[in-house]
Amino acid sequence: MYLAALIACGISGILILVRIILGKTTFDRILAINSLGTIIVLGIALHGFYSGRPEFLDIAIVYALINFIGTIAVLKLFSTGSLGDIQK
């Protein structure tokens, strides 16, 4: 059951990867990498259950956190041209 769910994650991961590599605009890529992050968060949680030691979910939380901050950082870079200043 967990394996099946993991396989589903793997399939959609590959599809998203295709979008990352094909991606026309950068926004597509950012969007796709954000989704890939979500998939990996799910994958981590599922793998914990699959291998019988589900107590390591902290990693998934950190993952989600890093994913969020990374995305915000990329978008900030795009909107103002640097991570530091606050133009506009």
């Binding site: 902290d58 950190v62 890093i66 901050i69 915000i72 991570l83 200043d85 606050i86």
Partner: peptide
Amino acid sequence: FGPGGGFQAGVIVASAFILYSIVFGL
């Protein structure tokens, strides 16, 4: 007790500040 420790914690705390700096300005 579980995965984690100084490095990871340091990075997480730092990331909170980084998020703050990104959103509200340096």
